[in-house]
Amino acid sequence: MIEVVSSARCIRCDICVRVCPADVFRKDAAGLPVIAHQDDCQTCFLCEIYCPTDALYVAEAADGPIGITESEVEARDLFGVYARGLGWSKGRAGGSQFDTTQHLRVAQV
């Protein structure tokens, strides 16, 4: 579930607050998104790819936080890892024209 909002990376654009399908974030007084309803997070990773500055990190564990820190995410280069895999960049969609799934569909038979 969602575990890290990097205040250093965040530009206070509010996009994550708007697009989270489970309504997990709230803005604090300074305009920084805070994780207000962590247990509602559905671990879909979509907030990460909509974030224009790769400031969010969703850990893979669905049932509870694992306690990963911002410095570990940074050190392991995990900020933006899903966006890079898809070809999304700076919160903008991209890369679907390079989707290789068609080869998997042929190979799976």
Binding site: F45, A59, E60, L78, V81, Y82, G85, L86, F98, D99, T100, T101, Q102, H103, L104, A107
Partner: peptide, 20 residues
Amino acid sequence: ALQDWLRRGQPNVMQPYERR
């Protein structure tokens, strides 16, 4: 090539492995 196709075609599926 299958490994490459899985990584590039199913990036959501790869997330747990990447992150772990």
